[in-house]
Design a protein around this nucleic acid. Structure first.
Lengths: 215, 215
DNA sequence: GACCTTCTCACCTACGTGTTAAGC
DNA sequence: TCGCTTAACACGTAGGTGAGAAGG
């Protein structure tokens, strides 16, 4: 859950900026099945949410915190279902052609931006409000426009406001996912249901249990 | 609904910063009855919400927008009910002693702060999320700690980020209110019910009608 | 037909209301 | 008793879910 910056020039690297992905175990659980994220016209939240913590910042310096959703490869994917004659086991994602021409790149600026390092460190920085969409209409702040059936991953940026080139970025491989308009893998959707409080009604045992969930 | 700044030094006043209170008619309606605001331990929103618009800002300059809740006078108030032998008409607020020692002053910084003038102008700046409380416990950002049964009013500040002394502040007399832990004036609470969407269940005709309400 | 997208839906979470009754 | 505060409550707003049916 820890990544180190490799984009800071060495002569400026007084201390190492370090970032930690929260909920790493959960992300790994999704990743081992094959994470899918739903795209809707109105925009769908990312789940699990992207939450990180920072350390190694200069306490009195101000920082700009950002996140991006970037394409992992140049493939288009399809899901080979378990009813498919070729496959006898659970379904799986396979390459199904070349990727679409990417949309314009968008970077979401976290509202905490231009806070001091001491205010950012040791506090969970959450991007749970960002949404994914496949519709260029009504595109607004906090919405990422993505192509369906392509593979993406999440990246976090942190930049010092006072030093133009001092920007670090961190990519978390375990957050990679394939975009869909409807879930393909039943095991995946069951894992979403098991962990997302907003999907409690689909829990096997009813909506009785409740887990504490911090954002 | 328009106030002009009188705190900007004349030699710097290239143009006049001007601020307009939204929902002024509604505020006047409340004020004519005698506005009350509820204090709770967890914090209660201000209603009507404080919403303003700015003009006369320098488009490319950055501004910090703030609001405060300040005491109007040094009195403690009580409500003289209509069942009181002395008064035959509707109840009214009367002075009932000297004010408590004020709590520490708190200023709420609007999240839009450090935006450029052009981004702030001609857009409604809303403070609807701020809360009032009478409990020093769990005091957090956006909560004003006030004494019950005292009179307060709302003030808005706007300061240029690059010029230390260039701060303007605006007080809206029509936003003055007396803090309570339970509404005293039945006419006042009926006016709240009639206008606050979250209190629809108490509408005389049931919760059928719905007015569009922007924030 | 197979595949993918869109829309509607019931049912959640989360929390903003004034009232009421109990507490002090 | 009286005045004021607190907590529980029912019921609203607002919006986040995956399923399922319908569309292309």
């Amino acid at each position: 859950g820890v990544a180190y910056s490799h984009t800071v020039p060495a002569h400026r690297r007084e201390q190492l900026v370090q970032i930690t992905l929260c909920d790493q175990a959960l992300w790994n659980q999704f990743n081992s099945i094959g994470t899918e994220m739903v795209l809707t016209k109105a925009g769908r939240r990312v789940f699990p949410s992207l939450r990180v913590t920072f350390s190694g910042l200069v306490p009195c310096a101000r920082y700009k915190i950002m996140m991006g959703v970037e394409r992992v490869d140049e493939n288009r994917y399809k899901f080979q279902g378990m009813n498919d004659a070729i496959v006898l086991q659970d379904g799986r994602w396979v390459i199904a052609g070349k990727a679409e021409l990417p949309y314009n790149r968008y970077v979401f600026v976290h509202p905490l931006s231009s806070s001091a390092g001491e205010d950012i460190m040791n506090k969970i920085v959450s991007f749970h409000k960002v949404k994914l969409t496949n519709s260029p209409m009504k595109l607004q702040n906090g919405k990422f426009l993505l192509h369906s059936l392509h593979r993406y991953q999440l990246r976090v940026y942190i930049a010092r406001c006072d030093i133009p080139d001092d920007i670090s970025s961190f990519r978390f491989a375990e957050t990679n996912f394939i975009t869909v308009t409807a879930y393909q893998n039943a095991r995946l959707s069951q894992l979403k249901i098991a962990n997302n409080p907003f999907a409690r009604r689909f829990l096997p045992g009813g909506a009785r249990r409740r887990k504490k969930q911090s954002r």
